[in-house]
Design a protein around this nucleic acid. Structure first.
Lengths: 239, 239
DNA sequence: GCGGCGGGTGTACGGAGTACACTCATTGAA
DNA sequence: TTCAATGAGTGTACTCCGTACACCCGCCGC
């Protein structure tokens, strides 16, 4: 009886369930709350049980990245390289936005898993299929950098630490004015983003617009180079 | 006597010495070797002594970033925004290359220190002084992203883990051929970088060239926008 | 001379990752 | 039918971190 209860109750762990639980945990509690004990607890299991399915925490993180990469749409067919690249990057971006830990984890990875290499390979394929030389494609990929994953480092943004609720709003305002006075240029461009003033450091600028602004600027640059038959040889001679 | 020896020997610790030692340690042993015990040992002191000079490890890292920012050249005068920005970014890049931990630490920072804000402020100032609108400057700064610090995320590169010396070179070669077969596009663009074949994944492409390629592409784009009086209002209407 | 204070010390705690030896249920071969 | 091998889950314990907290001691102004 007890046996039966147990056998019916216990869905055996496996690598996929571990990864899925890790993703959910990181999504919901933040990547900093993802530790082996907590994850095990979430799965109703003792920490060391996890190690029967993954070698160590690094591999767990690698696996989580693979889950994420799996969510990115494949390249659209018959659309020209520019559209294909653009749409794919924006699809990647949607994945990244669903999983806020993605940027940090992706940047910390040291060895690329096959799934990641697969993504990069097919990404590169879009340029080659569009007639780009391997040479140009190479430099183009470098120029894209992490934008191929749909993210950039946010320099100002990110709620970060919303000032502890204890700080009265008038003091906050005073601090902001103080900052604005010390860093007038920052204040000026921050003000350009949201005319309703107030927040000085980013906050409330349209990240999606920023992202597409830079992406399109890059893609247009790539297009121009492609059309004029740019090669790195020539570029190096021109210097 | 012993007293005298001690007083002459002990140069009292202070925040600057702690930070300097931390920078040296991170430079030489890698950021992952920088921990409070090791740093204290390096300074001939007990770990808790450090906490008399810095509040916690986060603040230590902040301080290290400040040291680094202090190494970046100020903007050149009388040169036009494009040259000024370009030179400054390349100066920043030289700092980053001297301190390999910089990228990781800078990206992990959550609150900007005054020194960092100062740098950003003066950076923004270069565009504004060049006649850029606050609006355009804002988007331009986003587009630059971490390139304002002189780095990008290296997607393939970085020696990472040079395969353990134990693996015989012929096996390595076989593995590379295997990878090249599975990821032909990656192989193609990697091949474009170094025709002497062999290394498939980056390794041996000219990072400095890649960096300047993308930087100039961006700067040219900024210039074009600036000349044609780009505004985000209009851009949003055009979509 | 003395009391306070600031920089250095010692001890110890809690949270992380994980090595290692174990228990126990399942399963395929004898 | 038995029994050994396997593989999943357990328990304990170790190491490495950051750092809280109580302490100690030498200098400096009164």
């Amino acid at each position: 009886m007890t046996q039966q209860m147990e056998t019916t109750r216990r869905i055996p762990l496996n690598r996929d369930r571990v990864l899925a639980a890790a993703v959910v945990l990181a999504d919901e509690a933040g990547i900093e709350s993802l530790n082996m004990r907590r994850l095990a607890q979430e799965l109703g299991v003792v920490p060391m049980a996890l190690y029967k399915h993954i070698a160590n925490k690094e591999e767990l993180l690698d696996g989580m990245v693979d889950v994420l990469v799996g969510e990115i749409d494949p390249p659209v067919r018959d659309a020209g390289w520019k559209t294909a690249v653009r749409l794919r990057v924006l699809s990647a971006r949607r994945s990244m936005l669903r999983h806020r830990w993605a940027r940090q984890v992706l940047e910390s990875r040291i060895n690329q898993t096959p799934a990641v290499l697969e993504y990069m390979d097919s990404f590169i394929g879009m340029f080659l299929a569009g007639g780009f030389s391997a040479d140009l494609t190479h430099h183009v990929m470098h120029a894209l950098g992490s934008r191929m994953w749909g993210f950039t480092q946010e320099l100002f943004d990110d709620p970060a630490t919303p000032p502890p609720a204890s700080v009265p709003p008038e003091v906050q305002a005073a601090m902001l004015r103080e900052i604005a006075a010390r860093f007038p240029n920052i204040a000026a461009v921050a003000g350009a983003a949201n005319h309703d003033d107030g927040s000085v450091v980013g906050q409330g600028c349209d990240d999606q617009f920023e992202f597409e602004f830079a992406l399109d600027l890059l893609l247009d640059g790539f297009e121009r180079f492609h059309e004029q038959g740019w090669t790195s040889e020539r570029a190096k001679l021109d210097r």
